Amino acid sequence: MKIKIDIDPKHDEECQITISAKEWTKEIEELVQLLKRKQPKRIVAVQEERSIVLNPEEIDFFFARDRKVFASIKGECMELKMKLYEVEKMLINTGFIRFSKSVIGNINQIDRFELSFNGTLCVYFKSGSKEYVSRKYVSDLKTQIMEGGDL
């Protein structure tokens, strides 16, 4: 893929993107979707009757427990008023990936991981927290890490 950028004061204020290709590919589809999507700047959590604004980049992982969704930042858990699938949809292509049916992790916060005897991965975050990746999602995680995390 070739990328050509033309910066010139004679252009209008509005940015214009042109994609030239022989045929429509999955790579082009992903690029178009990425360009159209607005990335979330903040997520609102609730802790002790207070609303707290969170920066998604600082969050280690999101998890669901007892029909509630929580964000874990440096070992501290804060409840969200969202469903886990809504969090996943909102943070797609931002470095968050599904670890299991009940966990979505931030691969940009991963420090290391260890293979467990049953085929799952134990992921250790920079904050010291840890979470497990089920076998179903291990290959997706490896692919994301090899691609450099954030898309």
Results as ranks from 00 to 15, higher is better:
2 K>T: 03
3 I>P: 03
3 I>W: 02
5 I>C: 04
5 I>W: 01
6 D>L: 11
6 D>W: 08
6 D>E: 15
7 I>Q: 12
10 K>W: 00
10 K>C: 03
10 K>Y: 01
10 K>L: 03
11 H>W: 07
13 E>A: 04
17 I>V: 15
19 I>H: 09
19 I>Q: 13
20 S>E: 15
20 S>I: 14
20 S>G: 07
21 A>C: 07
21 A>F: 05
22 K>A: 11
22 K>N: 08
23 E>M: 05
24 W>M: 15
25 T>V: 07
25 T>L: 08
25 T>S: 14
26 K>H: 01
27 E>N: 08
27 E>W: 03
31 L>A: 13
32 V>C: 12
32 V>S: 03
33 Q>C: 14
36 K>F: 05
39 Q>A: 14
39 Q>S: 13
44 V>S: 13
45 A>G: 15
47 Q>N: 08
48 E>C: 12
49 E>Y: 10
49 E>V: 09
49 E>S: 08
50 R>K: 15
51 S>D: 02
51 S>Y: 06
54 L>F: 11
55 N>T: 10
56 P>M: 08
57 E>K: 14
59 I>L: 15
61 F>C: 12
61 F>K: 12
61 F>A: 03
63 F>Y: 14
66 D>P: 09
66 D>T: 12
66 D>R: 09
68 K>F: 07
68 K>E: 07
68 K>H: 06
68 K>I: 05
73 I>S: 04
74 K>P: 09
74 K>E: 14
77 C>G: 07
79 E>T: 08
82 M>S: 12
82 M>N: 11
82 M>E: 14
84 L>Y: 00
84 L>N: 01
85 Y>N: 11
85 Y>W: 09
85 Y>K: 15
86 E>L: 15
86 E>K: 15
86 E>P: 14
87 V>H: 10
87 V>E: 09
88 E>S: 11
90 M>G: 00
94 T>N: 12
95 G>S: 03
95 G>D: 00
96 F>V: 02
97 I>R: 00
97 I>D: 10
99 F>K: 04
101 K>Y: 01
102 S>R: 07
104 I>N: 00
105 G>M: 05
106 N>V: 01
108 N>H: 00
108 N>A: 10
109 Q>H: 05
112 R>P: 03
112 R>M: 14
113 F>T: 04
113 F>D: 02
115 L>M: 10
115 L>C: 02
115 L>H: 01
116 S>P: 00
117 F>S: 08
118 N>V: 11
118 N>D: 11
118 N>Q: 05
119 G>P: 05
119 G>H: 02
120 T>R: 15
121 L>T: 02
122 C>Q: 05
122 C>N: 07
122 C>T: 00
123 V>I: 13
124 Y>C: 04
124 Y>G: 03
128 G>A: 03
133 V>W: 01
133 V>T: 00
134 S>E: 00
137 Y>Q: 07
140 D>W: 01
141 L>P: 12
141 L>H: 02
142 K>M: 10
143 T>D: 12
143 T>P: 02
144 Q>T: 09
145 I>K: 11
146 M>W: 00
148 G>Y: 05
148 G>Q: 08
149 G>R: 09
149 G>H: 10
149 G>W: 10
150 D>I: 09
151 L>T: 02
